[in-house]
Design a protein around this nucleic acid. Structure first.
Length: 744
RNA sequence: GGGCGGUUAGCUCAGUUGGUAGAGCACCGCCUUCACACGGCGGGGGUCGCUGGUUCGAGUCCAGUAUCGCCCACCA
């Protein structure tokens, strides 16, 4: 029903009132009967609900929303779901602290169990061990509150999401889809398990994937150490930053063309202190200009060690345990006396002790030379990664590099150069994708292993769950053909204790949102491959890449037609916001201060992919624009009485000219939107709007009023043109400022 | 070492077939006249990183270079 035109239009309160209207009318509901060619589907990024809200969220989600609103206005049925990423380490850590619990994958589910504490954990409380399923239930309980806060923010911001299409990455639907996709890959030979050296976080005690690594500059020192030639011809000097790995040394290596070391190839040397005979080998990866040009190979100091160990077929002498401490038993052949002095120590402590021993024995040459060097870390971890041998699940990527790049080229990238980041990442992969994690809050592998008569696990004959039984937790469910009483006993079975990496779940968001293979649902066929994947450019190597891998494995097509990459929000010091402490702004405050349309204006002013400074000045401009639109509309509607435009009445050349320009603007902005350049569409519309107000309106004002009644034809012409252009402007601005345009 | 992006007014940025440099903010000045003081109008301010080339004409195209940032590789 028409509202009374206010004397003084205001932006205040529009968010709440229009959100209620949109919800009540189901304005943004997906039409599930629409056919694929009339659907526009969006693979919305599920935000990490255990993280805090920040302005970066509003920024990138606004970009997507302008596209969604544009597509809806072209007549498409827009599939715009929302997911919550509650799966993974951040949630797990919060749950541990909030309820004072820890997960134990071997414990059975106890449906009656309740937590003793909720946030009010006494300092001396002992963490209670609970089953994985109980742990997951706590995670779900705790994240519900966060999800509410996010939904409130999104609604206030005016995201035209269909709120009946939501999911959480740990809910049953996500688990079923993740497990099913996994079983398909196993059946097709695209996923496999392998016991191999793995990058390992000693604090979280889990494997870590290549995509989760980050380098940090740490102080270190080159230690020059003497190895003794077994032919009695003197010593060979190596330089190492990790002398504590001496007992793990399995060979020395130099470049095949290095004249200094050529005579040594094929001979052996003895390690200092530990007195192990190791060969001297040649390998092209050895760099003559690094250190002394000859390096010790340890199992394992870094990823190059792994390559040498594999390619030169060297033995294994592992000394670092999964907790990062030196293991109790010395590898075979290692002198026990000096080794005993290292047992139980951390790498750092062991290094100090080794240096003392080497100094005592005279085998450390000179003072260690201090350096700083990059050291690999888990991006969420504190201490450097170690490499330990462990059994993990992998998805084949290396053999599919070419095909993945090819599929990447079937996607239209916005901006286009982001495609190269994807291709560079794929091109640079040096191992398959490790998807198993030794954690609790994640999707479990639907797998058990038989135990032989001696109670040993038979990893070669895994028992896979039936697809019909998914989702399942093997720690609680019993494999086909067994009874629960056989769990953990010889001749029985054990569950796979691991969970999937968080990316192994979020990499199937199109399948989750689209209810893939869900009984009674044909949604997936209507939305897949999806039209758009919007996301930040920082997670091309994770989310975008892994989604491509899964889509390739299951469907052999790219999961979307377009990928649009949003930039970062930078604080005024050009630092990434939210990373450094104290500069994070609460988004809801911005929305209240400037109005959602103004914040959306700021976000939409940034060109696709461009890192953008947080700028309240730009929000002020947006607010000004929204107010101007109100006032201009008040003027036009006041003069026309809200009557629709009669284009036949537009006879005056000035009026025809403005319609002509408006028409050109529609073409230009439509083209920009079709090219995902929302910023251009906004900028052109804004420029036109200000010219319209400043020039055209002032020019025709008196003729439109026609207070004297001397030119009714000219007046009608102006009124119709005003009404028509105002209507055009409302629609062109609607994707950016939905609250004020709907109000008008 | 490889790849990518930026470099235009004090600040944040736009500038799409090459055709006499733009916006907002900030600064200064004017205006409460019937859409707009949560405002309007006007003003000052730029050798478009640098060098060379193509062209009648280059912020725009080409080559080179400097510099900042991001990603990757290296990690003895």
């Amino acid at each position: 029903m028409p509202k009374q035109m206010p004397d003084k239009p205001t932006l205040d309160g529009l968010e709440a009132s229009w959100d209620a209207v949109w919800e009540e009318k189901g304005t943004y509901r997906f039409d599930a009967t629409a056919t694929r060619d009339n659907v526009y589907s969006i693979d919305t990024p599920p935000p990490t609900v255990s993280g805090s809200l920040h302005v970066g969220h509003m920024f990138s989600y606004t970009h997507t929303d302008t596209i969604a609103r544009f597509q809806r206005m072209t007549g498409k049925a827009v599939f715009y779901p929302m997911g919550w990423d509650d799966n993974g380490l951040p949630t797990e850590r919060r749950v541990q602290n909030y309820y004072s619990v820890a997960g134990d994958a071997s414990m059975p589910y106890d449906p009656a169990w309740k937590p003793k504490f909720r946030g009010d954990v006494p300092k001396d409380a002992q963490r209670e061990m609970i089953s994985r399923r109980n742990f997951i239930e706590l995670c779900q309980e705790l994240t519900v509150e966060d999800e509410k806060a996010f939904e409130h923010l999104w609604r206030t911001l005016g995201l035209s999401v269909d709120w009946s299409q939501t999911y959480a990455t740990i809910d049953d639907r996500s688990q079923r889809v993740s497990q099913k996709a996994f079983l398909h890959m196993v059946a097709a030979g695209k996923a496999y398990q392998l016991e191999a050296p793995t990058l390992w976080d000693i604090d979280f005690q889990t494997a870590v994937a290549q995509a989760e690594l980050e380098d940090r500059e740490l102080p270190g020192a080159y230690h020059r150490i003497a190895f003794h030639r077994t032919d009695g011809q003197g010593d060979v000097f190596i330089e190492t930053t990790r002398p504590e790995l001496l007992p793990a040394c399995v060979a020395l290596v130099a470049h095949p063309d290095d004249e200094r070391y050529k005579p040594l190839f094929g001979t052996t040397v003895r390690t200092p202190l530990f007195n192990v005979e190791v060969p001297v080998k040649a390998h092209p990866l050895a760099q003559p200009d690094k250190g002394s040009g000859i390096a010790m190979i340890c199992t394992f100091g870094d990823t190059t060690d792994v390559i040498w160990w594999r390619e030169l077929q060297l033995p294994t002498r592992a000394i670092i345990g999964r907790n990062g401490r030196i293991v109790a038993d010395a590898p075979e052949g290692v002198a026990p006396q000096p080794y005993a002095r290292l047992v139980g120590k951390t790498s750092k402590q062991a290094q100090t002790e080794t240096v003392i021993m080497l100094t005592e024995s005279g085998e450390l040459i000179g003072e260690p030379k201090k350096i700083t060097h990059p050291v690999k870390h888990f991006e969420k971890g504190d201490r450097p990664l170690e490499i330990v041998t462990s059994r993990q699940w992998y998805v084949r990527t290396i053999e599919n590099k070419e095909r993945l790049i090819e599929l990447g080229r079937t996607v239209t990238w916005h901006p286009d150069y982001m495609r190269l980041r994807f291709e560079n990442w794929v091109d640079g992969l040096n191992g398959d994708w490790g998807i198993s994690r030794q954690r609790f809050f994640g999707v479990s592998f639907p797998v058990w292993y038989p135990l032989n008569a001696d109670g040993e696990t038979d990893y070669n004959n895994p028992i896979y769950a039936d697809e019909a039984s998914l989702p399942i937790d093997p720690a609680s469910a019993t494999p086909p053909g067994f009874t629960e009483a056989q769990r953990g006993v010889p001749g029985g079975f054990v569950a796979d204790p691991d969970v999937m990496d968080t990316w192994a779940t979020s990499s199937v968001t199109p399948q989750i949102a689209g209810r893939w293979t869900e009984e009674g649902s044909d949604l997936f066929d209507r939305i897949f491959p999806m039209d758009l994947r919007p996301q930040g450019h920082d997670i091309i190597r994770t989310w975008l890449f892994t989604t491509m891998v899964k889509s390739h494995a299951e469907f052999n097509v790219a999961p979307w037609k377009n990928a649009s990459l949003s930039g970062w929000i930078l604080d005024p010091d050009r630092k990434k916001m939210g990373k450094s402490k104290g500069n994070a702004v609460t988004p809801i405050d911005n929305l209240q201060e400037f109005g959602s349309d103004a914040v959306r204006y700021w976000a939409a002013s940034a060109r696709p992919g461009v890192d953008t400074a947080f700028d309240t000045g730009q929000m002020k401009i947006g607010r000004k624009l929204a107010i101007k639109l109100m006032n201009a509309s008040k003027f036009v509607l006041g003069i026309t009485g809200g009557a629709p435009a009669d284009l036949a009445a537009v006879t005056h050349p000035v009026d025809q000219a403005i319609l002509f320009r408006a028409s050109a603007l529609i073409s230009e902005t439509t083209a920009a939107f079709n090219d995902y350049d929302y910023a251009r569409a906004l900028e052109r519309t804004e420029t036109f709007f200000w010219n319209f107000c400043d020039d055209y309106v002032e020019l025709v004002k008196n003729r439109a009023y026609d207070n004297e009644g001397i030119d009714p034809v000219g007046s009608a012409s102006a009124r119709s043109a005003l009404a028509q252009v105002l209507s055009t402007l409302q629609r062109l601005l609607a994707p950016f400022m939905p609250f004020v345009t709907d109000e008008v």
